[in-house]
């Protein structure tokens, strides 16, 4: 067996960067033919790449009738403070949701690697639970929690802490919390893989050399789990900024984000070229973020293996 092989640990939903790093085996004699990938390649070329090309062509139309072509739709978007504001607030929303999911999700992943088998399966069940229930149901639950007569308001009212119900639903903070809950599994699962892969001898060595628990955590565990942090952040970020349902139901009408903006232009206003331009700009923004994260991931793997 030339080169041997490396085992990937639980690779459930672990995105490209991590999974690919572990499948890096030299071409084995048992490799399957790459031709097996052709049917899916062809399928996606026709039904994924070609539609995106159509979308791009359509975004070049100057008016819905398609009489002339040009970059005017992009000009309309980029020259319009309102549209740019929507793009900016969408990207910022993703940052907030990712940060909150990370702050809440990391301790869960860390605890997972330190507890017994029974607690482990309980934690994994709880983490997977949101993935097994409909996103509509999860979002709907947040309306029950955050509404004027919701759980938080009635609890605060009955405790006498407030006299009138707080406005929680249709606020950005409410939306950030709801999105963080809805997307947290995407953060926790790669983190569990990454933290579990850290050699326990390293933390032991750090403790033996006199570092306290906090110092060991910040100097050893956290930096070594960077690949997982980046993989999880990438998934969470991409999911949060494109979460059409949660954004529009918990966010309400006062806040407009890119998916809803796109949907309004396409469906309500039937302004397809402008909707296409919004889609392309949104796609490029997401792609830029993904590329950035992948770049960071490559750098962080260098740090983690050093």
């Amino acid at each position: 067996m030339p080169g041997g092989h490396r085992r990937a640990s639980s690779a459930f939903l672990v995105p490209g960067p991590i999974a690919m790093a572990t499948t890096a085996t030299p071409k084995a004699p048992t490799a399957y033919d790459l031709k097996l990938a052709l049917p899916l390649g062809a399928f996606l070329a026709v039904f994924f790449v070609a539609p995106l090309a159509v979308l791009f062509l359509l975004s070049l139309q100057s008016d819905p009738k398609g009489t002339s072509y040009g970059l005017s739709q992009y000009g309309n978007f980029l020259g319009d403070a309102f549209s740019l504001g929507v793009l900016g607030s969408t990207l910022l929303l993703g940052v907030k949701v990712t940060a909150l999911s990370f702050l809440l999700g990391y301790p869960v992943a860390f605890a997972y690697t330190r507890v017994g088998a029974r607690l482990k399966s309980l934690i994994i069940l709880i983490v997977l639970l949101p993935l097994l229930t409909s996103v509509v149901v999860r979002t709907f639950a947040w309306i029950v929690i955050l509404g004027r007569q919701g759980i938080i308001n009635s609890a605060l009212l009955s405790m006498g802490l407030i006299s009138t119900p707080l406005k929680l639903l249709y606020t950005e903070s409410g939306l950030v919390v709801a999105l963080a809950q809805v997307q947290m599994p995407l953060m926790v699962l790669p983190l569990i893989t990454a933290i579990g892969r850290i050699d326990p001898n390293l933390t032991d060595a750090s403790a033996a050399l006199g570092s306290g628990a906090w110092r060991t955590f910040f100097k050893v565990t956290l930096p070594l789990s960077l690949p997982g942090i980046i993989a999880g952040s990438l998934l969470t970020y991409a999911a949060a900024i494109t979460a059409f349902i949660t954004q529009s139901l918990v966010g309400g009408g006062q806040m407009l984000f890119m998916p809803m903006y796109l949907y309004q232009q396409a469906s309500t206003l039937q302004n397809w070229p402008f909707a296409a331009a919004i889609s392309i700009i949104f796609l490029v923004a997401v792609l830029a973020v993904v590329t950035l994260f992948n770049l960071l991931g490559r750098l962080s793997r260098g740090v983690a293996s050093a």
């Binding site: 995105p15 390649g41 059409f244 909707a275 949104f282 997401v286 792609l287």
Partner: peptide
Amino acid sequence: LFMSPLVLPALAFGLSALMF
């Protein structure tokens, strides 16, 4: 290519597929 539908906004894909 196989992973990209996972990351790109599904709504944008939905719109493009309808146009296609």
